[in-house]
Amino acid sequence: MQISPPKHLAGFIKHYIFLENSQKNNRNLRLFADGNTGMIISADMHMHDAEGNFLPLSFFYGQPTSYKNLGTEGPFSLLAVVFQPYFFNLLFGIAAKEIRNEIIPAEDIIQDRLAPFQEAMDRKSAPRMLISGLNSFFTHLIASKNNADLWVIQLQQYMLLNKGMASLRMLEHFSGYSERHIERTFQNHIGIAPRKYNSIIRLHHFLSLAKNKAPEQNMAELCYSAGYFDQSHLIRDCKSITGLTPTQYIKTKNKLAVNFIELH
């Protein structure tokens, strides 16, 4: 279940995703980069990383640059709050590049302020009621924060509009800043370099085209429509970000979210 935030939060939160698994069997999952950071809230999740280390029940995750293999044991329910890319830096004043690829226990950043939401998850409260409470929580947090550099947000939106095809020269012309200043500020606010962000955007544009493709369209046509010079470039980017070839990803049946899939 994917739920949009209210309009006044749309510039900070992309969407909420509620996931529930009632099966007792273990599951192998993969999370990969989509250009955003976020937060996971759960009361009963037994999720571990590829090394077998169990993750906190609730945590923030920094900007991923590739993919993470995860495992779950038994039933679980979780709520993912997917932030706009610059929101973590704005909210907590932490340079986004410092938490790139990191998972941070929520209590390390906001103490026990998520406890009521974890308890609501434990009581199996309706997701929309839980999200309504979170909307109030984030509205209160945002009210006490300074705005992020507006030009960085505008630049990120410009890159989205250009579907990952905005060159550094185009970014310089759009923003009026030098390449070096753009690189440094973008990494502080977004967590990764503009070039890497472009590649993530472009791949997700391809995945969107593939999901909605007409029957007569083939892989080559989708590849060029997404802005790739050739299929080898697409395959290289897709394997780097998702760990799968485009064909393998498209054939993956259980997509919990566009960047969160079950592996078999």
Rank of each mutant, 00 (worst) to 15 (best):
M1E: 10
M1T: 04
Q2A: 06
S4N: 10
G11S: 03
K14R: 09
Y16L: 02
I17L: 05
L19N: 05
Q23D: 07
N25L: 09
G35K: 06
M47H: 00
M47Y: 00
E51H: 06
G52R: 07
N53E: 14
L55W: 15
L57M: 07
Y67V: 12
N69M: 11
L70T: 01
E73Y: 00
P75H: 12
V82S: 08
F87Y: 11
L91R: 01
K97T: 02
I99S: 03
N101C: 07
I103G: 04
I103F: 09
I104Q: 01
P105Y: 01
L114T: 04
Q118Y: 00
Q118C: 11
A120F: 03
K124F: 09
L130V: 15
G133D: 15
T139G: 11
N147Q: 15
A148F: 03
D149T: 12
W151C: 00
I153S: 08
Q156I: 06
Q157D: 01
Y158C: 11
S167T: 15
R169F: 13
M170Q: 02
H173E: 10
H173R: 02
H173K: 11
G176N: 10
Y177K: 02
T185W: 09
K196P: 09
S199F: 00
S199R: 14
I200H: 00
I201W: 04
H205L: 06
F206G: 07
Y224C: 03
H233E: 10
C238K: 05
S240L: 01
P246W: 00
Q248A: 15
Q248L: 14
I250S: 10
T252E: 02
L256P: 00
V258C: 02
H264S: 12
H264E: 10
